[in-house]
């Protein structure tokens, strides 16, 4: 009871974002889980299905600052992180913060920029600080990056390597809306209107508090063993060249904790693990044969399911 009262803001958040992005409950849920577990989200999907909408809705609902970077071939790291400008009048260097200094960052088409730029962003994501010429600037709390990748186009892209993909706690696919939902969208008025109507349902402090609570969700040994068994199964599966790393297992546990909190519990059950296993693990696997694009997405999801089917779950 008590727990449920405390997680009421989460329900409101869910409800609000679901109201904007129609018919994508699971995707929204996963986004919130990623947010709660202090991770970052990777959306791998075709263009025009509402990625920006999702990010904006989320940011507005939690009263967070929102910035967006469109990654192009010629994007430089300084365009993301910031630059030291020489002020001639004052005669000194001033730091101009880049767009990364925000709460919610939408990194659009991250696979379009050079690896150097990608790594600049990913390092900032990992360390939650920016170091420039000897000075360190911490990023604001909470810091949530939603990166998008277009899995179809490959000309002129630099796909993220597996080691970098590992930094995203979850990968989400939004997918096309159902015909009914698409109809509703068209009927429901302008995009901007819906977004403008959003009001924050929680403050940033509340979100931070929820994040702390998510980290403290109790995990029984049996459930953790189940997570480890899953990870080992991915490593030993002959179809998977590289399985889940220990960082992946930790991500699995963190995401499962957030998922438990989202359901209003402060203890983890095996179903939480099972629910988040797909989104957490699928993008971390290196497959034999290296299928491309959407087929790779589908293939990894299938593999995760087959692995899940083979690992015995605790009672």
């Amino acid at each position: 009871m008590e727990t449920q009262a405390k997680t009421a803001p989460l329900d409101r958040l869910l409800a609000q974002v679901n109201g904007v992005l129609v018919g994508k409950d699971e995707a929204v849920r996963r986004t919130i889980i990623a947010l709660l577990s202090r991770g970052h989200l990777l959306i791998e999907d075709v263009p025009g299905i509402g990625k920006t909408l999702l990010a904006l809705a989320l940011a507005r609902s939690i009263d967070a600052k929102f910035r967006r970077i469109q990654f192009t071939n010629d994007l430089l790291p300084s365009d993301i992180l910031g630059i030291n400008l020489y002020d001639q009048k004052e005669g000194r260097f001033d730091f101009r913060a880049g767009p990364v200094f925000t709460n919610v960052l939408l990194a659009d088409e991250i696979n379009r920029s050079t690896p150097k730029t990608q790594s600049a962003l990913l390092e900032a994501m990992n360390e939650r600080q920016v170091s420039l010429e000897g000075t360190t600037f911490p990023l604001p709390e909470p810091f949530f990056v939603i990166a998008t990748e277009n899995p179809v186009e490959h000309a002129g892209t630099f796909p993220l390597p597996e080691a970098q993909l590992d930094r995203f706690i979850m990968r989400v696919q939004i997918g096309y809306p159902s015909p009914a939902d698409e109809l509703k969208v068209l009927r429901g008025g302008e995009l901007a209107g819906r977004l403008d109507a959003l009001t924050p349902v929680m403050t940033l402090e509340e979100l931070l508090e929820l994040q702390r609570r998510a980290a403290k969700v109790h995990a029984d040994d049996a459930v953790l063993e189940y997570a480890v068994a899953l990870a080992r199964a991915t490593r030993e599966d002959p179809r998977i060249r590289l399985g889940l790393s220990p960082r992946g297992t930790q991500a699995l546990a963190a995401a499962a904790r957030a998922s438990a909190l989202l359901e209003g519990r402060d203890f983890m059950v095996p179903d939480d693990i099972k629910r988040v296993a797909g989104p957490v693990a699928a993008h971390r696997l290196m497959l034999d044969g290296a299928p491309f694009g959407l087929s790779r997405v589908a293939e990894s999801e299938r593999l995760i399911e087959s692995v899940l089917a083979r690992v015995p779950a605790p009672a």
């Binding site: 059950v269 095996p270 179903d271 099972k274 899940l308 089917a309 083979r310 690992v311 015995p312 779950a313 605790p314 009672a315």
Partner: peptide, 8 residues
């Protein structure tokens, strides 16, 4: 089933 949780 072995891979099913109780809830499922």
């Amino acid at each position: 089933r072995l891979d099913q949780t109780a809830r499922e």
